[in-house]
Design a protein around this nucleic acid. Structure first.
Length: 907
RNA sequence: GCGCGCGUGGUGGAAUGGCAGACACGCCAGACUUAGGAUCUGGUCCCGCAAGGGGUGGAGGUUCAAGUCCUCUCGCGCGCACCA
C-alpha cells in the first residue's frame, strides 16, 4: 500500500452490501409473485404490493455468469472480470427499466474435493461447504447485484434431483430421424421382424438418448475413471495431465451425435464470437463425402470406407483398417496372422499420446488379404495401421497415396504403388497434390471421370456408386457420443437399477437418489466405482442393484441456468410460467429469446457450451423449454495475466489475490480497474499501478462531492472510534458547499450530456474501458467548476452506479439527505433510478475547429461557425495561413469539403 | 500442418476510411508542504533550437484521404491436429 486512503471505502462498502442484503434490493420477481410495497422495483414500476403476471411485469433481461467451481484456492482475479462486466450491465438494464435476472451459484461436484477426501479422509461435502463459504464471502465483498434468493448448488439434493430427472428424460427418449427431434420412447415403432419382448427391449435400449455401450473408452488409470473425449487433451487428462489409454468398458453414453447437424445449424442463429463458433464447428467436424464398399477377394466379407475424395477412387492402391476394426480377424491370412496379432496388441497398449504425438512415424502390417476396387476390379492389398482411427468414419480407408500426404508417407515407407489421378491446375507436382484439379487416369469399362474438375468428378462417381449399389453420398462427423459415466464418488448417482443384466430407470418419485455415506472414496480393488463399497446402498430389497457409476461434473452445469428461473420449486425443475417469462420468445416479452447475455471463459468452448446446448435441445424437443438455444448472446472474457505478462500460477508466484486488492483499494476500485484494463475479450496483464490509478479517480469523485473540512474531521474521529461505531460516523462527511441548487450552465449541461451519450453507447457495445475514461473526463472537468449544480451531479451518480455502486450509493444518499432540493427520487435506491437520457441539441457546437489538409496531410486548422456552407469552408481553407506555402505555384486540382469535418485541398 | 484472432508511445490501451496516440500508468517540471510514496497544475510518439520532417510489424496496392479496405510477407497468441 503506497497511497493514502483516498476515501473511506472500508466503511462504505460493507455498509451498502449489508443494505442490499437486508432489503433484497436485487431480488428478481417472477410472474405472480407478491412484490412488497417498499421494494424499490415495485416503487420504480408502480407494482408494489401487487402480484403482477408476465404481461404486467416489465420486459425481462437475463444476464448470466458461468457459475464457478468453488476450489480450495478461493476466487482469483479472473472471476471478478466477467462478473463485473455482467454486473455493470445488470445494473444498467435495471436502470433502463428491465426486470433483470442476475443469479449465481456453485458448480460444486468435481474431482478436486474427491481427491482431497482420498488424501485426508475429509468428506467432500465438508470440503465443498467450506469452499462455497469462502467463494460466497469473496463474491459478496465485491458488491455484485445478484439475486441471492436464487443461489443454486449442484451438490444439493434439491438440485441434483432434477439433474437426475433430466437424465430420465434422456433415458426415456429416442431421436426420430424422420422428425429430427427427440421423442418419448413409447413413440418408437418396432420393425415387424422384432416380436419378442426381449428383442424389443434391446431395440429400444439401443435407441435411447441415454444408453449403455461396451466400447473402447478413455480410461485414465491415475484418476481411476473414464473421461469424455472433450476431457482428453493431447492424450492426457484435462485435469492433472495424466496419461489416458483406450479400454473397452461398459459405460453410459448420451446420444449427442444425433444432434450434430442441429448443433451446427443453430450456431447461425446465435450471437457468439466467430472464433467460438468456429471451435464448435471444428469439434462437430462435419465433412461431406461418400461411403464406398469394396468386396474382398476370395471372401464373402465386404469392406466399407468413408472418403471425402471419391473422385480419387481410381488412385486407391491399398486399403487400411484400424487395428480395432472387426474385419481384421476375419480376413487376415494364416501367414500374416502372427504379425497382425502382434501389431494389434501393441496398438492396444499404446496410449493415445503414443499413437499420435510421439509416433509420427507410420507403422502397419499387411493382412495378407486383397480388396477389389469397384471401379476397375483391381486387387489391392489390405493393411492394418494405427494411423487410421477406429472412431472416425468406418474405421477403414481406401489409401490414395498420390493425393493424400499421410497415405503417401505410408506408401513410401512400405513401397506401395503411387499413381496419379488428379492433374493440378498450376505447375504443381502431382505427387501428394491434395487440392482440387482435373481427374486423369480415371477411366474403366464401366465409368470414366477423365477431364472432369474435382467437384464434377465427385458428383459423377458418387452417382455411379449409388446406382450400382457400391456406395452412397454421406456425411460424417468428428463428434462422438458423450461418455457420461464416471467411476467417482462425488457426483450425481444414476437413477438406474440393474436386474438380471438389464438396466431399468427408477421412477421420478424415487428422486433424489443420494450418494451413500462413505469413509473411503477410492475405487475398489477390483476396479469398481467407489459407490460399490456401500453394499447396503447398492443392494435393493427386491434383488435389484443400483448403478454405481456417477455422472460427470458437466451434468449439473448443463441446465443450472434453468434452475435459477425457479430455484426452490419442489414440483418441477422450473415452473412453465417462469420458463416462458425469462426464456421465452421475443414476441411474448418484447425481449430476446433465451439468455440475453452469457459471459465466461473460453475454456468451456467445447465442453459445457456444447453439452448444455445439447440438453437444452432435448428439453426443447420434449416440450420443457421454449427456445431451441439457451444462450442467445455469449461473450468470452480474456484471461488476466500476471504483472510479468505470464499466466498467473502459484509456481510463478505472480498470482494476485482479490481479497488483498479489496482490502487495500476497495471493491469499487477492483471492479473499475478490471473493466478499465482494456476490452473485455482481450488477454491483458495485471498492473497494481493501474489499480491505484482508478482508485485515485474514485478519490477525486469523493472529493468532488464531499466537504474537505468535514472529511478531515471524519478521518480524525475514525482514529479513536471503536470499529462498530465507525460506519455510522460516515454521516460526518458532509456534501461540499459548492454543490448548489442552481441552473446549470451550458457548458455543464454539455459535459453531462456528452458523458451520458458516450457511456450509454459504450455500455450497449460492452466497451467498459472507454465508458470509464468518459466518466473520468467528466470528473476532471467537474473538479474545475466553482459551482456544481445538484441536478447535474445527481445524474452523474446514476451513470457511475453500475461501475462503482458502493461509492455512488453513498454519495447519492448524501445528496438526498441534504433536503436542500426536491431530489430526483429521493429515498429510492440509486440502483433503481431511471437511466439518464441525453439531449442531442445540447451537444451541438456553435463553432467548430476544422482541420485543413493539403494532399491528405494536416496543414492548418480553421475555426468556423457550425452553420458554415461548403463554399464558405472552402474559401476559408484556401486562405488559411499555414496552408499558403503549400499552394505556392501549384494548381488546385480539387477540394474535398466535408461540412463540419474536414477540408482536403488536392494540388 | 489446418482454422481463427492480434501486431499502435517506455506501459495498459483510444481512434463510423477523415486531426494517430483519448483515458490511465510511468516519467519530467512546478505549486502547496517540516516532509511526500498525499493532493493540485503543466509537460511527455520520434528527430529537430525552430521551420519542418518522420511515424500504427514489413513490402506493395485501392483512395482526394488508410492504423482502419485489398494482396503478399514476418512475428505473436489461441484452438484443432494421422478426422481419410
Amino acid at each position: 500500500m503506497s497511497l493514502r486512503r483516498q476515501y473511506p471505502f472500508h466503511l462504505i462498502e460493507p455498509k451498502w452490501q449489508r443494505h442490499w442484503d437486508t432489503h433484497q434490493t436485487f431480488r428478481a420477481w417472477n410472474p405472480g409473485e407478491l412484490i412488497p410495497a417498499a421494494h424499490p422495483f415495485g416503487l420504480r414500476h408502480g407494482l408494489g404490493g401487487q402480484e403482477p403476471g408476465a404481461d404486467a411485469l416489465p420486459p425481462k433481461y437475463y444476464i448470466l455468469d458461468m457459475f464457478p467451481y468453488p476450489s480450495g484456492a478461493g476466487l482469483h482475479v479472473g472471476h471478478p472480470e466477467g462478473y463485473t462486466a455482467t454486473d455493470i450491465l445488470a445494473r444498467y438494464q435495471r436502470a433502463r427499466g428491465f426486470n433483470v435476472l442476475h443469479p449465481i451459484g456453485w458448480d460444486a461436484f468435481g474431482l478436486p474435493a474427491e481427491q482431497y477426501a482420498i488424501r485426508t479422509g475429509q468428506h467432500p461435502r465438508k470440503t465443498t461447504e467450506t469452499n462455497v463459504a469462502t467463494f460466497k464471502r469473496q463474491i459478496k465483498s465485491l458488491g455484485f447485484s445478484y439475486d441471492w434468493t436464487r443461489e443454486v448448488d449442484t451438490t444439493d439434493p434439491g438440485y441434483f434431483r432434477w439433474t437426475q430427472w433430466i437424465f430420465l428424460e434422456l433415458y426415456n427418449a429416442w431421436f426420430n430421424p424422420a422428425t429430427r427431434r427427440a421423442e418419448p420412447i413409447h413413440t418408437l415403432r418396432y420393425p415387424p421382424e422384432i416380436q419378442s419382448e426381449n428383442d424389443r427391449r434391446t431395440y429400444r435400449d439401443t435407441r435411447r438418448l441415454a444408453f449403455v455401450s461396451e466400447a473402447p473408452v478413455n480410461w485414465c488409470p491415475e484418476l481411476g475413471t473414464v473421461l469424455a473425449n472433450e476431457e482428453v487433451i493431447d492424450g492426457k487428462s484435462e485435469i492433472g495431465g495424466f496419461p489416458v489409454i483406450r479400454k473397452p468398458m461398459r459405460q453410459w453414453m448420451l446420444r449427442i451425435t444425433a444432434y450434430a447437424e442441429r448443433l451446427l445449424e443453430d450456431l447461425s442463429a446465435i450471437e457468439w464470437s466467430h472464433s467460438l463458433k468456429e471451435m464448435q464447428r471444428n469439434w462437430i467436424g462435419r465433412s461431406e463425402g461418400a461411403e464406398v464398399t469394396f468386396s474382398i477377394a476370395g471372401a464373402a466379407h465386404q469392406l466399407t470406407v468413408f472418403t471425402t475424395r471419391p473422385d480419387t477412387l481410381f488412385g486407391a492402391t491399398y486399403m487400411v483398417l484400424a487395428p480395432e476394426h472387426k474385419l481384421v480377424e476375419l480376413i487376415t491370412t494364416a501367414d500374416q496372422r502372427q504379425a497382425v496379432e502382434q501389431y494389434r496388441q501393441l496398438a492396444a497398449t499404446k496410449s493415445d499420446l503414443e499413437r499420435t504425438e510421439l509416433a509420427k512415424d507410420k507403422t502397419g502390417v499387411w493382412t495378407g488379404a486383397y480388396a477389389i476396387n469397384p471401379v476397375n476390379q483391381k486387387q489391392i492389398p489390405i493393411w492394418v495401421a494405427d494411423y487410421v482411427l477406429a472412431s472416425y468414419g468406418t474405421g477403414a480407408i481406401m489409401a490414395v497415396p498420390g493425393h493424400d500426404a499421410r497415405d503417401l508417407e505410408f506408401a513410401r515407407k512400405f513401397q506401395l504403388p503411387v499413381v496419379q489421378v488428379v492433374q493440378p491446375l498450376g505447375a504443381a507436382d502431382w505427387q501428394g497434390f491434395v487440392d482440387d484439379g482435373i481427374a486423369v487416369h480415371s477411366a474403366s469399362a464401366e465409368v470414366s471421370l477423365d477431364g472432369l474438375p474435382t467437384a464434377d468428378a465427385k458428383r459423377t462417381i458418387t452417382e455411379w456408386l449409388q446406382q450400382t449399389g457400391r456406395g452412397r453420398r454421406t456425411i460424417n462427423y468428428k463428434l462422438r457420443d458423450w461418455l457420461f459415466s464416471r467411476q467417482r464418488y462425488w457426483g450425481e448417482p444414476f437413477p438406474i437399477v440393474w436386474r438380471e443384466g438389464h438396466h431399468k430407470a427408477l421412477p421420478a418419485s424415487a428422486l433424489p437418489v443420494c450418494p451413500p455415506d462413505l469413509t473411503d472414496f477410492k475405487p475398489t480393488a477390483s476396479g469398481e466405482p467407489p459407490l460399490a463399497r456401500a453394499k447396503d446402498w447398492v443392494a435393493l430389497p427386491d434383488g435389484a442393484v443400483r448403478e454405481t457409476n456417477t455422472m460427470p461434473q458437466w451434468a449439473g452445469s448443463c441446465w443450472y441456468y434453468l434452475r435459477y428461473l425457479d430455484s426452490t420449486n419442489a414440483k418441477a425443475f422450473t415452473s412453465p410460467e417462469a420458463e416462458r417469462y425469462w426464456m421465452g420468445t421475443a414476441a411474448a416479452t418484447g425481449s430476446t429469446p433465451g439468455i440475453d447475455l452469457y459471459v465466461g471463459g473460453t475454456e468451456h468452448a467445447v465442453l459445457h457450451l456444447l453439452y448444455a446446448r445439447f440438453w437444452h435441445k432435448v428439453l426443447f424437443d420434449l416440450g420443457h423449454v421454449s427456445t431451441p438455444e439457451p444462450f442467445f448472446k455469449l461473450v468470452n472474457q480474456g484471461l488476466i495475466l500476471g504483472e510479468d505478462g505470464q499466466k498467473m500460477s502459484k509456481a510463478r508466484g505472480n498470482v494476485i489475490n482479490p481479497d488483498e486488492i479489496v482490502r487495500d483499494y476497495g471493491a469499487d476500485a477492483l471492479r473499475l480497474y478490471e473493466m478499465f484494463m482494456g476490452p473485455l475479450e482481450m488477454v491483458k496483464p495485471w498492473s497494481t499501478k493501474g489499480v491505484e490509478g482508478v482508485y485515485r479517480f474514485l478519490g477525486r469523485v469523493w472529493r468532488l462531492f464531499i466537504d474537505e473540512a468535514s472529511e478531515a474531521e471524519l478521518e480524525q474521529a475514525l482514529t479513536t472510534a471503536p470499529p462498530e461505531q465507525q460506519i455510522d460516523m460516515l454521516q460526518r462527511a458532509r456534501p461540499s458547499a459548492t454543490i448548489q441548487v442552481t441552473e446549470p450552465t451550458g457548458a455543464q449541461l454539455k459535459a453531462l450530456h456528452a458523458c451520458t451519450k458516450k457511456v450509454t453507447e459504450d455500455l450497449d457495445g460492452m466497451r467498459f474501458n472507454t465508458a470509464i475514461s468518459t466518466l473520468m473526463i467528466f470528473v476532471n472537468e467537474a473538479m474545475t467548476w466553482a459551482m456544481k449544480p445538484l441536478a447535474v451531479l445527481r445524474e452523474f451518480l446514476v451513470l457511475l452506479q453500475p461501475f462503482a455502486p458502493h461509492l455512488a450509493e453513498e454519495l447519492w444518499q448524501r445528496l438526498a439527505a441534504g433536503a436542500d432540493a426536491p431530489a430526483r427520487g429521493a429515498g429510492v435506491a440509486l440502483a433503481y433510478q431511471p437511466w439518464p437520457k441525453w439531449d442531442p441539441s445540447l451537444l451541438v457546437e456553435d463553432w467548430l475547429e476544422i482541420p485543413v489538409q493539403v494532399n491528405g496531410k494536416l496543414r492548418d486548422k480553421i475555426v468556423v461557425k457550425a452553420t458554415a456552407t461548403p463554399q464558405e469552408l472552402e474559401a476559408l481553407a484556401l486562405q488559411a495561413e499555414k496552408v499558403q506555402p503549400f499552394l505556392q505555384g501549384k494548381t488546385i486540382k480539387k477540394v474535398i469539403v466535408l461540412p463540419g469535418k474536414l477540408v482536403n485541398i488536392v494540388v
